[in-house]
Simulated scan of single mutants.
Amino acid sequence: MNTIRIWQTLRTSLFYTRFNSWYYIKFVFVLQALILLLAFPFLALFFHFMTTSLGYDSITDQNILEFLSNPLGLLFAVIFGLLALFFYIH
């Protein structure tokens, strides 16, 4: 069984982060820009589709239980949550 050397792994990762920080910053910036420009509009369109297909103008605290009691509304909410989680993780 291979043992994991935690301190060696941390030193190596800090070494690469320190000397390649500009590449890391550029990668994170590009990734966050893609999420902002692609994921948010897609989630907004999906949310609009989700509400209009079930006949709602918006989802508020007044009608959330009614929305989630509909099987299609619950399915849409789960899909929306999974998509949001997917875009958040990546």
Rank of each mutant, 00 (worst) to 15 (best):
residue 13 S to G: 04
residue 3 T to G: 01
residue 46 F to C: 02
residue 55 G to Y: 12
residue 67 F to C: 09
residue 39 A to S: 15
residue 1 M to A: 09
residue 19 F to R: 09
residue 55 G to P: 10
residue 48 H to C: 03
residue 31 L to Y: 08
residue 87 F to R: 04
residue 63 N to S: 04
residue 21 S to F: 14
residue 40 F to A: 11
residue 73 G to H: 01
residue 3 T to S: 08
residue 59 I to F: 09
residue 52 T to S: 11
residue 30 V to D: 03
residue 83 L to T: 03
residue 69 S to N: 12
residue 25 I to R: 15
residue 9 T to G: 12
residue 1 M to T: 06
residue 11 R to N: 14
residue 15 F to S: 12
residue 4 I to N: 01
residue 70 N to I: 02
residue 81 G to K: 00
residue 6 I to Q: 00
residue 8 Q to Y: 08
residue 27 F to Q: 10
residue 19 F to I: 08
residue 62 Q to M: 13
residue 48 H to R: 12
residue 30 V to Q: 13
residue 24 Y to E: 05
residue 68 L to A: 01
residue 31 L to G: 07
residue 56 Y to N: 08
residue 16 Y to F: 13
residue 45 L to Y: 15
residue 57 D to K: 13
residue 48 H to K: 13
residue 37 L to V: 08
residue 19 F to W: 14
residue 62 Q to K: 15
residue 68 L to R: 01
residue 50 M to C: 08
residue 60 T to C: 07
residue 51 T to R: 10
residue 65 L to T: 07
residue 20 N to W: 11
residue 44 A to M: 13
residue 25 I to F: 14
residue 90 H to E: 10
residue 81 G to Y: 05
residue 43 L to F: 06
residue 38 L to E: 02
residue 44 A to Q: 15
residue 86 F to C: 05
residue 85 L to W: 00
residue 55 G to A: 11
residue 4 I to E: 02
residue 11 R to L: 15
residue 8 Q to D: 15
residue 81 G to F: 12
residue 68 L to D: 02
residue 18 R to Q: 14
residue 21 S to C: 06
residue 38 L to V: 14
residue 56 Y to L: 04
residue 61 D to S: 13
residue 62 Q to I: 13
residue 63 N to F: 02
residue 33 A to T: 11
residue 55 G to H: 10
residue 16 Y to T: 09
residue 57 D to C: 06
residue 46 F to Q: 07
residue 9 T to P: 00
residue 21 S to Y: 14
residue 78 V to H: 00
residue 62 Q to C: 00
residue 8 Q to F: 06
residue 48 H to A: 11
residue 31 L to Q: 05
residue 81 G to C: 08
residue 68 L to N: 01
residue 60 T to Q: 06
residue 83 L to V: 08
residue 65 L to D: 10
residue 73 G to V: 08
residue 25 I to P: 05
residue 41 P to I: 05
residue 89 I to P: 00
residue 47 F to Q: 14
